[in-house]
Simulated assay, not measured.
Amino acid sequence: MTTILVTGGTGTLGRLVTERLRADGHEVRVLSRHSRPYAVDLRAGGAGLDAALAGVETVVHCASTPRGGDEQAARNLLAAAGRAGVDHLVYISIVGVDRVPFGYYRAKFAVERLVEESGLGWTVLRATQFHDLVVTLFEGLSKPPVMAVPAGVADQPVEVGEVAERLAELALSAPAGRVPDMAGPEVRPLDSLARAFLRATGRRRPVLRVPLLGKAYRAFREGGHLAPERAVGKVGFEEYLARRFGPDGGR
């Protein structure tokens, strides 16, 4: 039995990783800001982090936020993992962090480099956006009477449960460095995904494709965040929507 620490273990991905590892009989510690007994703010570090890592062999680092602080959190985690003698750190990143000049992507790419240079055994998996993240985006965009989406941008959403399965598998394997990306089963224009969302939720909105400006938008339009050659996911967007909202569109 392996002792594993999952950072962000109460989040969308971390919770599923924790469940899968525990189902396999492993001791799993969940670290988040509010999850006792390992309630730790990674950005602050401190004695609580050292205690959480004592006796841990593998860390699965899922904690992340677009609000900033990922790099400092990683520095604190990696330093404490080194002190604790952790054998293996698995990090979940995003497809395109090295190609899309978007602030959150740049932070994730910087964390990748910190992991690689840490001196620990490491594995990095990049995945495309989760289905639920796309739905969260569309829920916000569909509030006005017209649903505006970025013109010319496609996405390749992947099922979070499938990514969790892969992370659990990697956590129980030897350090592998950068492993092949994991992407959803199909590349779809955003307006196509938006219309599927509207149908599934029973909402009626015209969808308007709006061109944007900037380097990040251009990189997204060019598909820097996609991995069509790694379309290994099985669950498509409509299947996810049907599971989440049901046949009556959640009405």
Rank of each mutant, 00 (worst) to 15 (best):
P180C: 11
I4V: 15
G250S: 05
R126I: 06
S64A: 15
E186H: 13
I4M: 10
V179G: 05
R99W: 07
R99D: 12
A80K: 00
T123P: 01
T12Q: 15
A183V: 06
V30D: 08
Y38K: 06
K234Y: 05
D41N: 07
Y105M: 09
E116R: 00
Y105W: 12
R244S: 12
W122I: 03
S93G: 04
D50F: 04
L208A: 11
D132Q: 14
T10M: 09
G250C: 04
Y105P: 06
V90G: 02
H26A: 08
H131Y: 12
T12N: 14
G48E: 02
T10K: 05
V60P: 05
L49V: 03
R33Q: 03
V59P: 00
A80H: 00
D70V: 00
G177D: 01
V56K: 04
T7S: 10
V135L: 10
D41A: 09
T3Y: 06
Y104Q: 07
P228M: 11
M147R: 06
A216M: 01
V90D: 00
G69K: 01
Q156N: 08
E159G: 05
E229W: 13
G177V: 01
A200R: 06
H34C: 06
S64P: 06
D24H: 15
R43A: 11
T128L: 09
A84F: 01
A127N: 15
E186W: 12
V90E: 00
A196F: 07
I92Q: 12
V60E: 03
L5E: 03
S35M: 11
R15W: 11
Q72T: 02
G223M: 11
H26T: 08
E27T: 15
V90L: 04
A81M: 01
E165N: 08
G184Y: 09
A168D: 09
H26D: 11
R126Q: 14
G82C: 02
E71C: 02
P189K: 08
T201P: 05
Q156F: 13
A74N: 02
A196G: 06
R33Y: 08
G9Y: 13
K108W: 03
L141K: 09
R204F: 09
D24T: 12
A39F: 12
R166T: 13
R209Y: 04
V134F: 13
D50N: 05
E71H: 02
R243L: 06
A63D: 04
P189S: 06
K234C: 08
L212F: 11
L49S: 03
F197Q: 11
S118K: 01
M1G: 12
